[in-house]
Design a protein around this nucleic acid. Structure first.
Lengths: 212, 212
DNA sequence: TCTGTTGTTGAACGTGTGTATAGCGAGCCA
DNA sequence: TGGCTCGCTATACACACGTTCAACAACAGA
């Protein structure tokens, strides 16, 4: 006596979109660029092909939504690990580094996802906008830490904007190298030491020429 | 009185492969990931579709060949701009920076090409191998400069390997940021200043903790 | 229990993909 | 000038893609 199997279950559009985003991210992590596929994502989410175009005008919009979800999630997790009022600016930078150099972020699978996003920036305004927004977020946060550091140590504050660019680039570069070469030539501990040493350089006035 | 138009011209396989690689790079620069297409590349090269599979077992091998050509070309141009015997180690680093931060390398179109390569690293052993080889090349060159710098300035040489990782990451990160955000928040001059300041930090002993 | 709304399905369509292959023809060499 | 080699063309094939749309069915409210 089999039940008349229910063919599907309805859920709220907002919740369904969330599920689709999660399935899309799993597809991107597993298949890279080939994971940008209505059929693969629908299969991963356990729904029919047509459902994606019912909730999104095109697959690009789903990917853009996925990018925004992932990028903001990581940003919040990393910056949320830093108590903005406790300790010195130097302490806050160290806390930021510890959160940034965590397995959540330093995961080679993540690069496969990110590379897809980067490749779509030029053609998709939605993804470009999401990228610019999170990028500005990191710049703002790092500039805040460095401005505090400059104030506490009496360094010239004119260097702050550019120094934040440099630190951001260093962190991105370490992440990139880590993800591209899984058989690593350096440890997470060493990666943190590189970032800390960069701040040491700032504290020793090595970045004075940026003020010119 | 029209000539009986020649339908094609034969050239040496080696030369033809070179033309195909150049066409592939133009396609990647223009169309990004969508440029990885036998039909697009064949059209760009002005040859028939089947010719690519005549010269390469699969399109992935053509892309790998293109990657190797481009990566080695840039590597040779950048490292070739540094006279390995003249001046101090610091001079050589500065010369390297000037060559690296040139319009040849700092071209947003180049990122579109590179992103395609990165996305294929996981699935294509040929591309992975080409990447590892050029990566090792940069590591070797930078380690050389930094070892000379350490010897000239009496710094502990144990830090050299890891410092090269840091410098390489910084350069990659600056390049990435430059290419991802064409409406730049910094100039090439400032980018060079960031790299020079990093070396200042090394010279001031900021990277002593790497030796631990 | 019936009805209306709407989230969901799945087949269909046109396009683009990589590869295989049969045959054409350009250019070399005797 | 003939013939032969092989670089090259162009068609064909099977498959995957994104999108569309008419029909279906789950669930809320009456």
């Amino acid at each position: 006596m089999t039940q008349p199997a229910r063919k599907f279950t309805r859920i709220q559009p907002e919740l369904r979109r969330e599920h689709l985003v999660e399935a899309a991210l799993r597809c991107l992590a597993e298949h890279g660029h080939a994971g940008v596929s209505v059929r693969k994502i629908a299969a991963e989410a356990g729904v029919s092909i047509g459902l994606i175009n019912h909730h999104y005008d095109s697959i690009d919009q789903l990917i853009a939504h996925a990018y925004e979800t992932l990028a903001i999630g990581i940003f919040n997790r990393v910056t949320g690990a830093v108590d903005p009022s406790a300790g010195t600016a130097r302490d806050r930078l160290s806390a930021f580094f510890r959160a940034y150099f965590s397995p959540d972020v330093f995961d080679p699978k993540l690069l496969g996802v990110w590379v897809v996003f980067w490749s779509m920036i030029r053609h998709s305004p939605a993804i470009k906008a999401a990228h610019d927004r999170t990028n500005a977020g990191y710049a703002r946060v790092l500039e805040g830490y460095l401005a505090d550091l400059a104030a506490e140590n009496g360094l010239p504050p004119t260097t702050v904007r550019l120094a934040a660019v440099g630190l951001s680039a260093l962190l991105d570069g370490i992440w990139l190298q880590w993800c591209l070469t899984p058989e690593q030539a350096f440890t997470i501990h060493e990666a943190i030491a590189l970032a800390e040493s960069w701040v040491d350089g700032v504290a020793r006035g090595a970045y004075g020429r940026l003020a010119s």
